[in-house]
């Protein structure tokens, strides 16, 4: 079966000094949840916007491959892309308030999306909107359709965003930190909803987050991003069982895990901060913060395979973690 989305060596630069995405490759199959995880500023949102063709004018995008089904997105015209967006590829943004228009009711915004892609009447579109609001667990859809975004709580707004993204039954849904601004209780509700919808509709989900807890509970496959590159990619189970890249291991040590807390010991932490990378940077971008760094890390770093579907970007051999554990 051919993949839903395939990106090869995707690069995005802003001007001459910032390389935000540096050679990202990923493949998404039908019905799969792929999590893109990393700290802020590492290029997750830019990757998503590059796939959607929504980058700002100052950005420059290039890719060896960027395919959605049979469409070559690198060659698709802006009109062609607009026809895909919202129809077959949909996106949920980090901040719901910036992507819902405060001047229009929920209903008119949802209907507008549907009518842009399907030749249907306003009434049909509104019916469809009500149906979807119900589906995402909103109890009084008729009322909500008539309300304005600011009249909704954060959790409701995010549900509206999700149902709006599902209006045209997309095959690929890109969700950029859909729950970062929400309470843990609401977050659990929204994620559960996304998981159920995805199973029912068989859609492929590219879920962007910085929360390893979400990754563990949602992902089929995980790609860890650092400074514009995917430094480790593996099935979720393998990644948490055998994290191999020093950055992934560091991240996992940083998070306090409920009911496993050792209060007398400090948390593991990674010294320093994410660097800003220029386009001509060579070598491993993590080397300033890496306890394993060696002189050769300033030169070319190979992408290695730990297993058939687990790869990482580092000079260390796959079994180095045993030495660290000992």
């Amino acid at each position: 079966m051919s993949p839903v989305l395939e990106a090869g060596n995707l690069r995005v630069t802003f001007g001459t000094s910032v390389a935000a995405v540096r050679g990202v490759s990923l493949t998404m199959n039908r019905g799969e949840t792929h999590c893109l995880v990393g700290e802020s500023g590492c290029g997750k949102s830019v990757t998503a916007l590059a796939i959607m063709g929504l980058l700002s004018r100052t950005a420059h995008r290039s890719a060896d491959i960027l395919r959605f089904h049979d469409y070559d997105l690198t060659r698709l015209s802006e009109r062609g892309m607009a026809r895909l967006r919202g129809d077959r590829i949909a996106m949920i943004f980090q901040e719901p308030m910036t992507s819902l228009n405060p001047a229009y009711t929920v209903g008119s915004q949802m209907a507008e999306v549907f009518q842009r892609h399907r030749r249907v009447s306003r009434a049909t579109a509104l019916d469809r909107a009500a149906e979807l609001l119900q589906r995402v667990g909103i109890t009084a859809p008729g009322l909500r359709l008539k309300q304005y975004p600011h009249q909704l709580s954060g959790g409701l707004r995010q549900r509206v965003m999700i149902s709006m993204a599902l209006m045209c039954e997309p095959e690929l849904l890109i969700a950029d930190e859909p729950t970062t601004a929400l309470d843990v209780t609401v977050q659990a509700q929204i994620l559960r909803l996304l998981q159920n919808l995805q199973r029912e509709l068989g859609l492929s989900l590219l879920l962007i987050t910085h929360d390893l807890g979400i990754v563990a509970r949602m992902a089929d496959r995980v790609s860890v991003m650092y400074a514009g590159e995917i430094v480790e990619s593996a099935p979720a189970g393998a990644l948490f069982a055998a994290p191999t890249h020093p950055y992934t291991r560091g991240l996992l040590r940083c998070i306090p895990v409920p009911r496993q807390v050792r209060r007398d010991e400090p948390l593991g932490s990674i010294p320093g901060v994410v660097p800003r990378i220029a386009p001509d940077f060579v070598g491993c971008s993590f080397r300033d913060r890496c306890a394993q760094a060696m002189p050769d890390c300033a030169r070319h770093v190979p992408r290695q395979r730990a297993t058939i579907d687990h790869d990482y970007l580092c000079r260390l051999p796959t079994d180095w973690t045993r030495a660290e554990a000992a």
Binding site: D211, V215, A216, R217, A236
Partner: peptide
């Protein structure tokens, strides 16, 4: 959400 894969939401 603890980072324990496979437990679902």
């Amino acid at each position: 959400l603890t980072p324990e894969p496979g437990n679902g939401i």
